[in-house]
Structure formats: structure tokens, C-alpha cells
């Protein structure tokens, strides 16, 4: 029994504390989980997007009301989040298609393409935001 008492306590790597502060995802892991989160977000956002499309095509006044609505700061922020989600899902998806073809699976290239996906999707969001408003 003395043995059991002196035994070193083993780290529990699935504790919440470990998940939040100790385990750090590699960049490709961030690309992957953000791909999933953005996909889930976009699934629900379709409802809102269809509502906006419906109103904007229904009539001239509907179109103008959508334009005014989209200019509200809160709405603009939400739309920018969705644009980012779409861009990230798009770029990460292209990366995954290449991974399916066994392209870019070595560590250095995978890290580089992860950085590229994260940077390009933010860049695209900024560019589209600037163009649309």
C-alpha cells in the first residue's frame, strides 16, 4: 500500500481545465474545428439568408428595407460573421479536398496551408465587407 501512496498522480488530460488551458490544438486542428463550427452556424443561418433574399426580391421597397436593415451595426456585424464563416468553410474545404488527394499532408506544408486558410478567409471577409457596404 505504501507503494500506492507514493505513486505519482497521473495527469488527467480530459479535465475541463486541461481542455481549456493545457491542451493546445495545432493550427490544422483549429482549421478543422472552425470548419465544423462554421458549417453548423451556416446551417442555421440559411433561414435568415432566405428571409433576406425573399424580401429583397419581392419588391422595390422590400429591397430598400433589406439594404437599410443590413446597414444597422448589429446586423452588419452578424452578416460579417456569416461571411467569415462562409469564407473559412470555403477555404478549409478546398484544403481538405487536397488532403483527400494526399497533397500537403507533411507537417510543414500542412502548417503552412493552415495559416493560409486562416489568413485568406479573414482577408476575404474584410475585402467583401469593404465591397458590400
Amino acid at each position: 500500500m505504501a507503494n500506492a501512496i507514493t505513486r505519482k498522480s497521473r495527469p488527467k488530460y480530459l479535465s475541463l481545465r486541461a481542455l481549456l488551458f493545457e491542451i493546445r490544438l495545432p493550427l490544422s486542428g483549429w482549421v478543422s474545428i472552425l470548419h465544423r463550427i462554421s458549417g453548423l452556424l451556416l446551417f442555421f443561418a440559411v433561414l435568415w439568408i432566405l428571409f433576406l433574399l425573399d424580401r429583397s426580391l419581392a419588391s422595390e421597397s422590400g429591397f430598400e428595407s433589406v439594404r437599410r436593415y443590413a446597414a444597422l451595426p448589429l446586423v452588419k456585424g452578424a452578416l460579417l460573421v456569416l461571411i467569415w464563416a462562409y469564407c473559412h468553410h470555403f477555404c478549409a474545404g478546398i484544403r481538405f479536398l487536397f488532403l483527400d488527394l494526399d497533397k500537403g499532408v507533411d507537417k510543414a506544408t500542412a502548417r503552412l496551408t493552415s495559416v493560409a486558410v486562416l489568413a485568406v478567409s479573414v482577408g476575404l471577409t474584410a475585402w467583401l465587407g469593404a465591397k458590400l457596404w
Binding site: 470555403f90 474545404g93 483527400d100
Partner: peptide, 19 residues
């Protein structure tokens, strides 16, 4: 993957039209 490719093409066309 095939549906992703179809949506990617549509997206590029729509963005070109919009901006």
C-alpha cells in the same frame, strides 16, 4: 465533395457578379 465543388463554382460566379 462533389456538391462542395458545385457550390464553389456558383460562389465564384455570384461574387464576380456582386462586386
Amino acid at each position: 465533395r462533389i456538391t462542395a465543388a458545385i457550390m464553389a463554382v456558383y460562389t465564384v460566379i455570384l461574387v464576380v457578379v456582386l462586386v
